[in-house]
Amino acid sequence: MGVTKEQVEASLTSKLNPVHLPLFFFRLYKEVIDTSGGCGASFAVEIVSEEFEGKRLLERHRMVNAALEEEMKEIHALSIKKAQAPQQWNPTPEDSSTTATTPTTDA
């Protein structure tokens, strides 16, 4: 099987220059969701990058697809859960516990 999590991570890191590395969530679903062929790797990604600044959602997703052009030939399914500029990024409770950059009111 061609594509690994590390490869996907490396390509996205080099081409999209993500500002929140801990936000990279890669999961391997392999043959769980898609019943049509079940032929290969399936990934879900979340990215926050300054490259997304001022770009529409469709444009941002296209950038992610382009960054993974080589891998896409072998990736069975890619789900882009999040593609945001730093300003748009609202950490969810689970995120903020690991980043601790947002001040809490009851500190």
């Binding site: 959602l57 469709l58 997703h61 859960k81």
Partner: peptide, 8 residues
């Protein structure tokens, strides 16, 4: 016009 895939 193309609108998007599943996630969009």
């Amino acid at each position: 016009e193309f609108f998007g895939g599943c996630d969009i």
